[in-house]
Amino acid sequence: MKLISVLSSLVLGVATLSAALPAADYGQSTTTKGCTKPMIRKDWRTLSQKQKINYLDAVKCLMHTPGKKTGIVSRFEDFLTEHQEKTAMVHFNAVFLPWHRLLLYEMERVLRSECGYRGAIPYWDMKQDVADFLASPVLNGRVSFGGNGLPSPDALPPYNTTAGGAITDGWFAGELIHVGIGNDTSPALRNITRNISQHYASAWLTQKQEDTVLSETDFGEFTLSLEGRLQLDPVKYAEIWGVHAGGHRAVGGDMQNAWSSPSDPLFYLHHANLDRIWATWQAANPEDRQWQMMGPIAPRAPFLGTWPYTPPAGNVTLDYVLDLGELGGDRLNVRVARVMDTSGSMPEDDEDEALLCYLYDQLA
């Protein structure tokens, strides 16, 4: 698979940082029973024009705010490189959903505290656009994420060579990424690329596929179904991408790269929707599912590279510690239990403090 970056001589600007918002505005998780003032994550298409501009401006602000990780140009790329560095450790295992939930939490917090965003991360309910994916309001109009990229002769079927290069419309046209593709975090200069695929949208983003995921009765099968069973056996389960990988491949370009997919701001809307599907599954049987965690620590398949150390044996439990490396520091070395309930409760008799405080406007 080849991705094409279009180099530019534009120089990164530096945005003025917004004043931090009061903590109470974000929501507080202080009791075992739940939090107060939860944020409400909403479908992108339901946001007002003003709310959409506020979100897009905040993301662009991160692209033009100096990074805090060593050697990283922008705050946006702090998050991108953390995903690049952790990809092999947080995919194809039980860590996949809780780790990405933690990453979204931190992105949401930083958007609000450093770039003046006043809402919660929106989600993209892709199944609503499955009939004509390229016509989605997420991808069209001035106040949008933009559509297809420029033609790319290296695009491989089922992608079209009429797209796959740099995006040229929407809020992020012309924006630059300053690290490499894949797991290459060294300095580079490239544009955000995209190659929309109706093929993958029609195959994996339907109501039927989502219902299949939600019909699973234990977390192990649920996360496998959501992330894609191809990881179990690339021959037996060839092209069984699941809603997660199917969404990445439907957007194409940067999004189809397992490591560097957060180069495209659409990454966060897609993963917010996957998190919403998990929250929906939990809410369907909360007594059994709210704290249900099972599955291996080590990846089920080695497709995404090796760990920097030998993966621990055994299964992920509520006591397994997640981390965001240099992005989150010690503050975000948190037990899985702390991110299991978006509304901020903890298991009975657990004296730790929950981290999250948000709900979705509607479940899947």
Rank of each mutant, 00 (worst) to 15 (best):
N148D: 09
V138G: 02
Y117F: 08
R101K: 06
L150R: 14
M126S: 01
W124S: 08
A120N: 11
N93F: 03
G119W: 04
Y159C: 07
L111Y: 07
E82K: 01
E106V: 15
N93K: 02
Y123K: 04
Y159M: 05
G149Q: 01
E106L: 15
L103E: 11
G149M: 07
M89I: 15
F92E: 01
P137D: 08
A131W: 09
Y117H: 12
A120Y: 06
M107H: 08
L97K: 09
A135Y: 04
A131E: 07
T161P: 11
Y123M: 01
V143Y: 09
L103P: 14
S113W: 09
N140I: 15
G146F: 13
A155K: 04
F96K: 06
R142C: 10
N140Y: 15
P98L: 04
W124T: 05
R142A: 14
R118W: 00
E82A: 05
V130E: 06
A131S: 08
E108Q: 13
N140A: 14
G141D: 14
M89A: 15
G119H: 07
V110C: 00
S152E: 07
L104S: 12
G147N: 14
T162M: 12
A135D: 12
P151Y: 13
A88L: 01
N160T: 08
R109C: 05
P153K: 03
L102S: 13
G119N: 05
H91A: 08
F96Q: 10
F96P: 00
P157Y: 04
K86R: 13
S144T: 15
L134R: 09
V138E: 02
V138Q: 05
D125A: 00
P158E: 03
L134E: 14
I121L: 04
E106N: 11
H100D: 02
S144D: 12
T87W: 00
L102Y: 06
F96W: 14
C115V: 09
D154L: 10
D125S: 02
L111I: 07
M89K: 15
